[in-house]
Design a protein around this nucleic acid. Structure first.
Lengths: 145, 145
DNA sequence: GTTATTTATCCCTATATAGGGATAATATCA
DNA sequence: TGATATTATCCCTATATAGGGATAAATAAC
């Protein structure tokens, strides 16, 4: 006799995760659009703002994006004037990305809007509920390693 | 004096959600690729399999996709021969989508692989932990309405 | 020190994704 | 009925996304 499968639970879990992310992204959409940024662009700018200059490879790991993907996002951010790409003289394979002054300004400008939008989106969750959600998601992620 | 902001918690929550989804999709990638399906295509096929024939609009609501998005996914699935699109004679604006026999076969073929892959991906979560994650995510989603 | 391997980046292709505008069918209302 | 509004779908454009292959630089092996 086979053990009872978790198929139903697994599928429910997948749906819960994907739909949560979709709903959140939809809710964020207008704020990003009004700032002329995409979610990925903001993710990149915010990461560079927090961590300082990073190689393409480091950024790829931090944002969990693929090479072909990040390349496009970076290209559009360079073209917009928000980041610069320079050869690392210590290892000439490496390209170091850093915010331009326009990039820093953009982060400074959008951050308040971003925070306000998140506050609105999450306004029906109290601090305790947010902590619980974070804890559960961190455990979930760790289990996927 | 201003109330303490939840900015840090909000940003942590966002990161936890997005990175969880990214990690999960990465883990699923190979299985989808070996079946020559994308995640969105499978989402669509599975939904049609569960719910039966649906209008484009209904499918859009169930899969939380945008019109321009679903259009592309449906086009590729029609071209692959997995679904058919027909005019609804009761309301000639509506297109009804349904699985072809090849579509039903594809769902039947891939479902075991899909279930096995989910079992592996979630192997470090027990039944209780899965339930907790589902509960928390459902609450999260409800809070976003 | 030359060869092999690894690593970092970039390019190519296919598909996904979102919003907005266009179009046609339907429903509403004066 | 005729004008208007709503709805369902489709199309267009820009960007994101992933994998795989190409290339160059650096490292390791011998």
């Amino acid at each position: 006799m086979k053990p009872p499968t978790q198929n139903r639970a697994n599928q429910t879990l997948v749906l819960a995760l994907l739909r949560s992310q979709q709903r959140f992204m939809r809710a964020m959409g207008p704020a990003f659009r009004s700032a002329n940024l995409t979610a990925s662009q903001w993710d990149t700018l915010e990461t560079l703002s927090n961590k300082g200059p990073l190689s393409v490879n480091d950024l790829m790991r931090l944002t969990l994006s693929s090479s072909g993907n990040l390349d496009v996002v970076v290209k559009n951010l360079v073209q917009a004037g928000f980041i610069e790409k320079a050869v690392d003289e210590k290892d000439r394979r490496v390209r170091v990305l850093c915010l331009t002054s326009e990039g820093h300004q953009k982060v400074a400008d959008f951050m308040p809007t971003h925070n306000r939008t998140l506050d609105e989106i999450f306004s029906h969750l109290n601090a305790q509920q947010k902590r619980e959600t974070i804890t559960i998601l961190n455990r979930f992620r760790k289990a996927l390693d």
